[in-house]
Amino acid sequence: MLALLHTSPLHIPLFDALRDEHHPGLELRHSVAPDLLVRAREHGPEAVAADVATALRRAAAEGVQAVLCTCSTIGEVAERAAGEVGVPVIRGDRPMAAAAVTAGPRIAVLATVESTLAPTLALLDDEARRAARPIRARARVVPDAWSRFEAGDIEGCAQLVAAAADAVTDADVILLAQASMTSAARLTATTLPILSSPRPGLAAAAAAGSARATVG
């Protein structure tokens, strides 16, 4: 069983669909804490670090083998709280960042909220150091995309993100920084590789949970 900590309920059907396609039979327990993102956007991720740890501990109760944090804004503080949780805590965007580093040195990062830019760029730098690969990452926020997503207009958000991705010309890979942007990839015309976090993040959490269950 995996626990997933989200900051939007709109992520639940996305991860359930990925589970059904790639990990049939895996039990997912969803926790949603939108206030964590609201406050992180206003005051920075460090301001909610203690509450993120509390949310992770709550999500990890009752037989869960691992917890996946799907929000890129609070991913760094969630990862740091792993020692307080008692089970592995997977930062959902780390596998994506590792793949981006190996795809080429020029990484174009697209986001829909400003608060995710610094954590994502820091994560890319960390993965670049681990891989001993130089990178040049550039990041920008897609205007109006987040307001569309918050209003439940996932398709409208995806269209704006897809248009921004198609406008990227000087990169080796495009990274969609937030799980909420995933559906944009199917709308793009660019020939550049586009990476998003939900599928590799869920796979990493499933592997961590399986390893823990085997050891246990």
Rank of each mutant, 00 (worst) to 15 (best):
L2E: 02
L5E: 01
L10C: 02
L14N: 03
L18R: 08
D20A: 15
E21Q: 13
H22N: 15
P24M: 09
P24T: 07
H30P: 05
H30N: 14
V32R: 11
V32P: 01
A33H: 13
D35Y: 15
D35M: 07
L36R: 02
L36W: 08
L37C: 11
V38K: 04
E42F: 09
H43M: 07
H43C: 08
P45N: 14
E46H: 04
A47T: 10
A49H: 05
D51Y: 03
D51F: 01
A55P: 03
L56C: 08
G63C: 04
V64S: 02
V64R: 15
A66R: 01
S72Q: 03
S72I: 01
E76N: 05
V77Q: 03
E79V: 05
A81C: 13
E84W: 05
V85P: 00
V85D: 02
V87F: 01
V87N: 00
P88H: 04
I90Y: 00
I90P: 00
R94D: 04
A97Q: 06
A99E: 14
A100E: 09
V101A: 08
V101F: 05
I107P: 01
A111Y: 02
T112L: 09
V113Q: 07
L124P: 06
D126Q: 14
A128D: 08
A131T: 05
A131G: 07
R133Q: 13
R133P: 03
I135N: 05
R138G: 13
R138T: 14
R140L: 07
V141S: 02
P143Q: 09
D144A: 14
D144Q: 03
W146A: 09
S147Q: 11
S147I: 08
F149A: 13
A151Q: 15
G152R: 10
E155Y: 08
E155L: 14
G156N: 10
Q159L: 13
V161Y: 05
A163N: 03
A164K: 10
D166P: 06
V168S: 10
T169G: 13
T169F: 15
V173D: 06
L176Y: 11
A177W: 02
Q178C: 15
T182F: 07
A189Y: 06
A189H: 14
L192E: 04
I194M: 05
L195Q: 10
S197L: 09
A204M: 08
A207P: 02
G209W: 00
G209T: 01
G209F: 00
S210E: 13
S210P: 00
R212W: 00
T214F: 01
